[in-house]
Nucleic acid binder design. Structure first.
Lengths: 347, 347
DNA sequence: AGCTGTTATGTCAGCGCTAACAATGGCTAG
DNA sequence: CTAGCCATTGTTAGCGCTGACATAACAGCT
């Protein structure tokens, strides 16, 4: 019955395409493409007319198609331990904003300090041919290392600085933070200084801070001493547990460095509930300078990491690597940032 | 000279493609494609062999190509006022995690309460043919409304609940929060209750909370009264400014509702510095239940929004709309969530 | 005039994948 | 025994865009 089968239809969905714009203006599709990607290569007159047609038709470039054709995208993937934590949020914010200012988008995933989740996220992100990838710290699973090395895109490690590593790094030496905290307490005259680790397993950076603390105490001829709260308890509880346990010892510490301000806050409030005076009976020191740290009673002495700066500089390094912005060259060294000691009432 | 020009080369870059896998196994590319997207339509035996080939070759599906071909992606865009703020971070975290569990990715942008930035973000996101779009509140520019309506993808509005609006909404009625705060203070016997607005322009939700407060006071035959800090100052400062200014009045308030906990914290500390007793001289109430709120002295009474729940349910609604997970149907009503009054020492 | 170089635009082929349709073979129902 | 059906796999034709290359037009130069 049917003579010629009609050409197979495809669900174009009536979306406005480059070709529609091109036809409207009377040029080839490529010229319109250039209008978006290399406007300087299109004559003034055409630029004007294309611009009008674009807004008249309400054309939205299909970034997927563009990325597929050019094997480049304007997506940057970021894997970070968590989003809602008080420190990383600032980094994400600054990173995202800086990218956005230069027309790039942020694809985000959290790893919860799990190397396996990090690997999954990296793998998935690579499926999107991202322009670059940003991860946290230099601790990765072996396969993640391999994948990142073979990805042939810029990779930036944040929140850490390990001299001599290949990828671009934007962060600080956690070891130094441990040294800084220990020195501060030593200068203040404390001698029995304990260190409380994070209850979150996989937070290797905290271990480096402890190493800095340990070496500093050893160099001063003092005994170092660390407490690991049971995993699986929330930071605040872990701090409480640590304080109770440490103070029960025969010779309790006269100062405690907590792996972060959440733990320190738990410790601080527990100390007060136990009737201890802070810092007279026991000094307390945190890390992170969270929003609440200055409002505690006594206000918490802590070390403030350059969270926003990390995000911003990481984004700038990414954009430089992609030649989106000119390279401000010998900045390699400026990737090593400093933490700031915030001395308040608890030490 | 040259007889036949060689076929033009393209920068394949040696990446492993579907075809490579298919060739290795000895099937067509489509079968491998089905292996990933509709595994149930591939025979057991092939599934096995394809799976092996995939990991042997280290094949990573090119999601761009897939999305282009199918006009569907597994990206969900989210536009939120800010990332690092203490409340939205939880929503983002829960949203991202829930999406990730079902193989979807989060593309994130922040609007800083600016309708224009929101519109830009939405426009850009649409270029990625996202599977769905999530925005904050029901306040959008006219063109954003239009774009969203025409997008033909699920759109979810979060952090707000306006009866009778078309898009899926997951949130609460800010008006109710205002009522709840006012009622609480009235019940406690306060009569001269002031409201302090947010210093961030564009936070329309705060205006709705104020409306709830205003109507409640009016219904009680009391005068309502609001203070707007100068824009451009950080929340903490704005709270300070408000407290100083309000307390200088001839008949100062006996209770103040702040638009959020940051403002309230500024107000609280200022009150104490001014020698006022809280809550005896002036009660203080916030909104948000930020991390520090319970640690202030006196601990801040506030209203806790279901931040994580919003993120999680928004993600579930998105996934349902996309038929990724079965629809738990008459949940429409469950999208309206409740805030919780957290009574502490400041009221 | 002829040559080179530069700028502005077009042609063509494909990026890697999947929807629509077709084909194959085994199996049941009439 | 054959039509009809399901399950499984293959063929074809793009999705919307951009790279490499080609071309045209025109300027500046010998």
């Amino acid at each position: 019955m049917n003579d010629i089968s009609p050409p197979r239809k495809r669900r174009n969905a009536g979306r406005v395409t480059l070709n529609d714009v091109a036809r409207q203006v009377g040029v080839s599709a490529l010229t319109v493409s250039r209008f978006f990607n290399h406007p300087e290569r299109v004559s003034q007159a055409l630029r004007q007319r294309i611009g009008e047609a674009v807004s008249a038709l309400g054309y939205v470039p299909n970034l997927m198609a563009g990325s597929l054709a050019s094997a480049r995208s304007r997506i940057v993937g970021m894997v970070i331990p968590n989003i809602s934590g008080p420190i990383f949020a600032d980094t994400i914010q600054a990173f995202s904003d800086t990218l956005a200012r230069h027309g790039h988008q942020l694809l985000l995933a959290s790893s919860y300090f799990s190397l396996e989740q990090e690997e999954n996220a990296v793998r998935t992100f690579l499926g999107w041919s991202p322009a670059a990838l940003v991860v946290t710290s230099h601790f990765h699973s072996e396969s993640t290392e391999k994948i990142l090395a073979e990805a042939e895109i810029p990779v930036v490690e944040t929140w850490d600085y390990q001299p001599g590593r290949a990828p671009i790094q934007v962060g600080f030496l956690h070891y130094d933070v441990g040294v800084m905290a220990a020195r501060h307490l030593l200068d203040k005259g404390y001698r029995r200084i304990a260190f409380v680790l994070n209850s979150a397993v996989g937070d290797f950076s905290a271990l480096e801070r402890r190493a800095g603390y340990g070496d500093t105490l050893q160099a001063a001829g003092l005994e170092s001493w660390s407490f690991a709260p049971s995993a699986e308890c929330v930071p605040f509880e872990a701090g409480k547990q640590a304080m109770e346990s440490l103070m029960k010892e025969a010779r309790p510490p006269d100062a405690i460095i907590f792996a972060n301000d959440n733990l320190a806050a738990g410790g601080l409030l527990t100390a007060r509930r136990m009737g201890l005076r802070v810092p007279d009976d026991c000094a307390v020191m945190g890390f992170g300078d969270y929003a609440f740290s200055g409002m505690l009673l006594p206000a918490l002495s802590t070390i403030r990491p350059p969270a926003r700066l990390i995000g911003e500089i990481a984004a700038l390094r990414v954009l430089e690597s992609l030649s989106v912005i000119p390279s401000t060259t010998p900045l390699q060294r400026l990737n090593r940032l400093e933490c700031e000691l915030v001395e308040r009432e608890s030490t």
